[in-house]
């Protein structure tokens, strides 16, 4: 059974479609994975969906997709085989309707890749297959060939929104109405993008992919700034912020303070979970209460930023409920006609 990594081979696309990598995506069916935290930040979904439609790409979502269940796996509430079965169910449904699956969230992306990786263990693979077979025997829902099997050599390929946007960066830049007006941007990749399993025997592979956000910021006319806590966690830490808030918020504070100290205007992240942690008003209040520090630096998701730069309606880019005077100011600076 071919259980190769389902992550898209970016190098190959860059090599074969060097004139314009967007050509690879034309005439292909794209599906957007629904991340739970998009609910709080509709601009995360809308930002990428609107861009894809403007680029005349075929884009949908999958109505049979469930949550990635990574949060339950991380708290030991489901077994590895159950986690893998939930993933395979989602992958089967999406493989049935699309060629490419895009992720706006590090957690979901990591969950689906990890679910697939877990299946390399023969014992887990057998248990997962058994669980899926159980579904088939109960004949729940509409069936089609292969629905209840572990996907064998599927056509479906997975790609993180950041990797996708970087791949088609020239087209993204062409679509922008505004630029970043030399604003200083502190980038935050998020642990589950930064620490994704890498091939340690391949030095180039091990160190690559760490400049995509900085490169995009530069292309958008901003100034990426380096800061001490750039690679540190946002503080979410697989729900540590809920279970041990005082300790976890110390990590959040260190991160935000470190970015403020170098004069960054805002933080940019490709993950809605990090965005939630770094910008939730309740957490900012708690930081003030626990540590006596007032934090003002806002955080923006990459998809939201692209929507702002493309001149989309403010309401669609950034939800009102998280608006702060600093965020408002940045929005005004970017959208001011120069």
């Amino acid at each position: 059974m071919d259980l190769d990594n389902l992550a898209m081979d970016l190098e190959e696309i860059n090599h074969v479609y060097k004139e314009n990598p967007l050509d690879y995506f034309k005439n292909k069916k794209l599906c957007l994975f629904k991340a739970c935290l998009e609910k709080f930040f509709p601009g995360v979904r809308w930002g990428i969906e609107d861009l894809l439609l403007a680029l005349e790409l075929d884009v949908t979502t999958c109505k049979s997709q469930s949550c990635c269940s990574g949060t339950f796996f991380q708290r030991n509430l489901i077994t590895r085989a159950q986690f893998a079965a939930i993933n395979e169910r989602n992958l089967n449904e999406i493989d049935h309707q699309a060629d490419i699956l895009l992720f706006p969230c590090n957690g979901c992306y990591n969950s689906l890749l990890r679910g697939r990786d877990i299946l390399k263990d023969e014992g887990v693979r057998e248990k997962t297959q058994e669980i899926l077979k159980g579904l088939e025997s109960k004949a729940i829902g509409e069936s089609y060939p292969g629905k209840y099997k572990i996907l064998n050599n599927p056509k479906l390929r997975l790609i993180h929104d950041l990797d996708f946007l970087f791949l088609i960066k020239d087209e993204v830049v062409k679509s922008l109405k505004y630029d970043l007006k030399s604003l200083k941007v502190a980038v935050h990749y998020g642990c589950h993008y930064l620490n994704l399993a890498r091939d340690k025997k391949n030095a180039i592979d091990y160190v690559k992919n760490k400049n995509k956000l900085e490169d995009l910021v530069t292309l958008f006319g901003g100034l990426p700034v380096d800061y001490k806590e750039k690679e540190s966690c946002c503080g979410w830490g697989a729900s540590q912020i809920v279970l041990h808030p005082k300790e976890a918020l110390k990590i959040t504070l260190n991160k935000l303070k470190s970015a403020e100290n170098v004069g960054a205007d805002f933080l940019l992240t490709p993950c809605p979970t990090c965005l939630y942690t770094l910008s939730k008003p309740e957490y900012i209040e708690k930081i003030k209460k626990y540590f006596g520090e007032k934090i003002e630096i806002p955080t923006i998701h990459l998809n939201e930023l692209i929507a702002i730069l493309r001149g989309c309606e403010e309401e669609r880019c950034i939800t009102l409920r998280r608006k702060t005077p600093r965020l408002e100011e940045i929005y005004d600076i970017i959208t001011r006609d120069s």
């Binding site: 609910k39 979502t61 049979s64 509430l77 729940i140 829902g141």
Partner: peptide, 21 residues
């Protein structure tokens, strides 16, 4: 988010999670 997951799909998830914590 958007359309709810069809009932039979929810049943599938329940079946997968049998005996789980």
């Amino acid at each position: 988010l958007g359309e709810p997951l069809p009932e039979e799909r929810v049943d599938e998830l329940n079946e997968i999670c049998n005996f789980a914590r």
